[in-house]
Design a protein around this nucleic acid. Structure first.
Length: 482
RNA sequence: GCCGGGAUAGCCUAGAGGCGAGGCGGCGGACUGCAGAUCCGCUCCACCCGGGUUCAAAUCCCGGUCCCGGCUCCA
């Protein structure tokens, strides 16, 4: 296995990835606060981590992946009030939406999706430990983390507490000793959802859930913690403070953060209202088009959303599918080789280079944009080989297919190609129609011949007349892509 | 104010001292009854500006300009 390097936000450098346990990667990705629809910005992050996770699995690791749901917090309570629902009902609804969207986007599910409301006991216990160790104090309206007690505060984001103070205003908060302190437990105001605790009825603060729930499932030390860049401060900074204060040692080995999804030069966000929901996007483009759009750019860079960009992605994907179909069709005229010509030597070499380049790019901080370049090089090489030979080498075609299967495995693109199964009957019926159509063509009855081709086309079967005869290919359905 | 990230051919993206960048789009050609797919060629020597280092800079150094983000809920 080649060495894998990842960019660690903590050290601001690429570091060689070495999991704490041999062969296993434990990772935690901050999930959404479920108070609204999932939009492309979220998808960007979760698809990025999905690719990272798939790649780690692909190169042989067992990945234990945890993603939390914040299903109770201020925004949920506020939104519920506005829409006249119970907070629980609201959270339930959007949580279901999120899972549905992720599934539609072919994001592999996490192993556990711990929810705050299902882990109140663990959270209370965590706060109690912090209190015992002298890092937490009780104020009039809640329990707070005492930032001044944690010396390393700011090490992830590079924020300096003094700067923070004089810079912009920090939430004053009635019960806080110091403005930079943050809530671990919020005492309930009338009408708010609440749970019993040693500090009276209330609910957890935002950051504590991740510390408490990650340690339950992944232990007090694990490999990767990720999320959008907007979580670096204060969320992840506060998580580090809580966790390391509590455990007394380094908590997370590698911090990975995704760049923002931009629209018209601004960050796509719920609060700006400039978002495209996944549902809406899926109605116009296929999941794989959306994935390719995201994969085309490195996960840490900002990504600008445009209609043009989506269409480019769709066209690019179509090209890959065409290549797969070309290979499939060529399989029928393929043969084992008793002698290689230039075309074979060259194709072999191009495939070899594509594979090498793909893995080298992925090993360099999951550089999907660079890796994709090699996918296209392989695609071009395959097409070129097919036009150069009457009878392609079976083994070479299989080699190409295996490479694309690996790509599909990691990117979650071209999956349809590998999972779709013909029933056999389907194939026979299409061949029957092709036969009829060719007789019509011989008689120059092109109107009927073209009608067969057109109608099959609208069913997703494309007929192509080649010097070798008529072949049929599956094609991407118009409008939706894949 | 304090921290980050960027400016790459018509568009989108990688790269990071010399080794044809990839995709999308456009034009022309081959193939075809037409279409489609594919291939070939072209889209003239791409890297924000000004200095410097070097045999060699898009890549390193210095100085600018412009854009974006974080410091507040946010993926």
């Amino acid at each position: 296995m080649k060495r894998l390097f990842v960019y660690n936000t903590m050290t601001r450098r690429k570091e060689e990835f070495k999991p704490l346990r041999e062969g296993e990667v434990r990772m935690y990705v901050c999930g959404p606060t479920v108070y609204d629809y999932t939009h492309l910005g979220h998808a960007r992050t979760y698809i990025a981590f999905d690719v990272i996770r798939r790649y780690l699995e692909h190169i042989g690791y067992t990945v234990f992946m945890v993603m939390n749901f914040t299903d109770i917090d201020d925004k949920i309570i506020r939104r519920a009030k506005e829409t006249g629902q119970e907070p629980k009902e609201l959270a339930e609804k959007f949580l279901a939406h999120f899972l549905r969207d992720m599934n539609a986007l072919k994001v592999k599910p996490a192993d556990v999706y711990p929810r705050v409301t299902e882990h109140i006991d663990e959270i209370i216990e965590f706060i109690r430990r912090l209190q015992e160790r002298g890092y937490a104090y009780e104020g009039s309206d809640g329990v707070y983390f005492d930032v001044s007690k944690f010396m390393d505060y700011g090490k992830l984001s590079g924020i300096d507490v003094d700067e923070l103070r004089k810079g912009v205003r920090v939430e004053p908060g009635e019960g806080k000793d110091s403005p930079e302190d943050f809530a671990l437990w919020k005492k309930a105001k009338p009408g708010e959802p609440k749970w019993e605790s040693p500090w009276g009825e209330g609910r957890p603060g935002w950051h504590i859930e991740c510390s408490a729930m990650s340690s339950k499932y992944l232990g007090e030390r694990f490999d990767i913690h990720g999320g959008g860049s907007d979580l670096i401060f204060p969320h992840h900074e506060n998580e580090i403070a809580q966790s390391e204060a509590c455990f007394g040692h380094e908590w997370v080995r590698y911090w990975l953060h995704t760049g923002f999804l931009m629209v018209g030069g601004e960050k796509m966000s719920k609060s700006l209202g400039n978002f495209v929901t996944i549902e809406e996007l899926l109605s116009r483009y296929g999941a794989e088009t959306i994935r390719l759009f995201i994969i085309q750019k490195h996960y840490r860079s900002p990504l600008e959303y445009t209609e043009d960009g989506m269409e480019h992605a769709r066209n690019s994907l179509e090209r890959l599918y065409n290549t797969m179909e070309n290979i499939r069709v060529a399989m029928e005229s393929a043969e084992v080789k008793f002698r290689w010509g230039d075309a074979e030597f060259e194709f072999y070499e191009e495939l070899r280079r594509a594979r090498e380049g793909f893995y080298a790019a992925m090993n360099d901080d999951f550089n999907t944009a660079e890796a994709l370049k090699y996918v296209f090089l392989a695609s071009n090489a395959a097409n070129r080989y097919l036009t150069r030979t009457e009878h392609p080498g079976t083994s070479l075609l299989l080699k190409a297919v295996e490479f694309f299967r690996a790509v599909s495995d990691v990117f979650g693109v071209m999956e349809d190609y590998f999972v779709e199964r013909s029933t056999g009957l389907e194939e026979e019926l299409i061949n029957l129609l092709i036969g009829v159509r060719n007789e019509l063509r011989k008689e120059k009855r092109y109107d009927l011949a073209d009608r067969i081709r057109e109608e099959l086309g609208s069913l997703g079967v494309q007929l192509e007349d080649t010097p070798k005869g008529t072949v049929w290919k599956r094609k991407m359905k118009a409008g939706t892509g894949r």
